[in-house]
């Protein structure tokens, strides 16, 4: 137990002094409190990451995996995946999956946030209901969507049939599989966008709206001239964070389509998962190479997010 004596300041701090001195105590006490986290990060973040890099620069098969004597191949695995015919299509699917998902999640989330900004009867309760998709386990959402999109017995085709649209093989046709998982993913992401954008709207002072309405601005003008520009920093953070999260999505796609049919809904993350765990023949080395490429992409946008957030704080 860390009951080390703290460096005695000796004096009663005036408020000014307390503000200047942000922290108290000796650095060693602080390190002791942070030690579990540091050990944890090293053991369960840094080490698995190092292992994953290690996997990607060796040629691991299942046997070498257990014995640990895989052949060193340098960047061969990376060269292999980039030159694989799957790479351009997986990259494009990733761009579509992330881009289209974010666009709709953001637009719908923002529309709902603006709608709920006005207080009306039940507004708090209804807003809470919108959190449901986000709280459900993904396996639940994904399997529900799968059944709703079932070609013969799904409710969606039944609705569409009622308005004269012919049967769509949502999940089993290569033309629509990516659309199907994107629709499910948009549904999943709306709550996150709604909550963050709503809290961003709360931070816009009410007198700004009053001023706009005194100037005779209608609802539409107010939104485009006042709300939207003032919300830009929060919007940027929402979209960037959503981007980083959407890039790494595996479960929803894997459960609904397994990346198929004919790789039509295969994103980089799903490709990596499939190589390592999705087939009877685990190919960890290429899987790790794909995964590491994904990390680099995620980090580029992640660092943009961190920079943006830091700037917001100042």
């Amino acid at each position: 137990m860390t009951t080390t004596a703290t460096t005695a300041d000796g004096e009663v701090s005036s408020p000014a002094r307390a503000r200047r001195r942000r922290s108290t105590g000796s650095p060693w006490v602080a390190v002791a409190f942070a030690a579990p986290l540091i050990v944890y990060l090293a053991a369960f973040y840094a080490y698995p990451l190092i292992r994953s890099v290690d996997l990607s620069i060796h040629d691991y098969n299942i046997r070498a995996f257990v014995q640990g004597n895989a052949e060193f191949v340098g960047l061969q695995n990376y060269a292999d995946i980039v030159s694989s015919p799957l790479f351009p299509s997986a990259l494009w699917n990733t761009v579509l999956f992330v881009g289209v998902s974010l666009l709709f999640q953001y637009a719908i989330g923002l529309a709902l946030a603006v709608f709920f900004r006005a207080n009306f009867k039940l507004s708090g309760f209804l807003r809470a209901l919108f959190l449901v998709p986000w709280l459900l386990p993904l396996i639940v959402s994904a399997s529900t969507w799968s059944w709703m999109m079932n070609s013969d017995s799904g409710i969606i085709n039944s609705f569409l049939g009622a308005v004269g649209v012919g049967q769509i093989n949502w999940i089993t046709s290569p033309d629509t599989a990516l659309t199907a998982v994107i629709i499910a993913n948009i549904w999943l992401g709306i709550p996150f966008n709604l909550v963050i954008l709503y809290s961003g709207l709360q931070n816009i002072p009410g007198d700004v709206y009053e001023a706009a309405s005194l100037d005779g601005a209608g609802a539409w003008t107010t939104f485009w001239r006042v709300t939207f520009p003032l919300l830009r920093p929060v919007s940027a953070i929402t979209v960037l964070l959503g981007l980083v999260y959407t890039l790494k999505v595996v479960d929803i796609i894997w459960i609904m389509t397994k990346g198929g049919p004919a790789n039509s809904s295969l994103t980089l993350a799903v490709w990596s998962y499939r190589e390592a765990f999705g087939t009877g023949q685990p190919a960890f080395s290429p899987a790790a190479a794909v995964g590491n490429v994904l990390i680099v992409i995620a980090l580029i946008f992640g660092l943009a997010y961190v920079r943006l957030q830091r700037r917001e704080e100042h």
């Binding site: 698995p48 790494k248 390592a276 957030q309």
Partner: peptide, 17 residues
Amino acid sequence: LVAQMIPAVVMAMGFYA
């Protein structure tokens, strides 16, 4: 902040190994 951005697939492979 950065740790939260690492894809779970990559972590899973590391853990598996």
